[in-house]
Amino acid sequence: MAQCTRKSALLEELEAAWAIAKKDIKIYYLKAPTLMFAILFPFAMFFAFAVGREMPVATLVPGLVSITVFFSASSIGPSALPLERRIKAYDRLVCAPISPYTVMVGKVLSGAIFGLVIGSIILAACLPVFGLQIISLPGLLLGLILASFCFSMLGIMLAMFPRENPGDVMLLLNFIRLPLIFISGIFIKIEMLPYWGQVASAFSPLTYANDLMRLALEGASAFDPLLSAALLISFSAAFLYIGRRIDLKFRE
């Protein structure tokens, strides 16, 4: 009969979040939409806009790593959630005795780990090829980890719209992602942007992720790294909150 054996509530939620993340890792990492939007897309963007321009390698590599993390971490949620809605597997998560935030955190974890792994592979490959060194390890860790979580949360927030086709959410996500890469100092330095562009860049989490990457690989940053870290955490919290509000809105 009923199992009411209780662990601590927090431990239960953490275990459930990890179970959701593990399941997503097994299922969605090698799906075609994930691979296309998470890996091919940032490379295509990078080669289209960066290669052939008179930019130093040390400036290009942080940008490549940033947009790879940006695209890969934010792609898992929009690939996974609509597919789970289509087969009603998402209902199973909503009806389970876990917090709605736990479901979101589980989903965020799988996206963040994906972004972290793909970003690290790209970085590890670029370092010897371009003869670069890691100048600030704390900057690199902060940048990779916080950016992965923040961008994954952005994807989950948009995936909270109750769509059953991954393409619908990806379309919405790209509507946000594509403009952000042009105003966040990836291909054009922020100080070279027009005034409105510089103002807009302050509202892009990619600006702060890229700045931390620049600190890690160039040793220079436009913002205080602690401010960048705090802002990435704030963006993540805001995306989590808005995502939950979207979910609630469509459950009314």
Partner: peptide, 22 residues
């Protein structure tokens, strides 16, 4: 609403995990 990519055992284990079964 089962996960077609997971095995039968993995599906059951996952359900147990989100229902906090030890």
């Amino acid at each position: 609403n089962v996960y077609p990519e997971l095995s039968a055992l993995e599906n059951l284990n996952f359900a147990g995990e989100i229902y906090h079964v030890v």
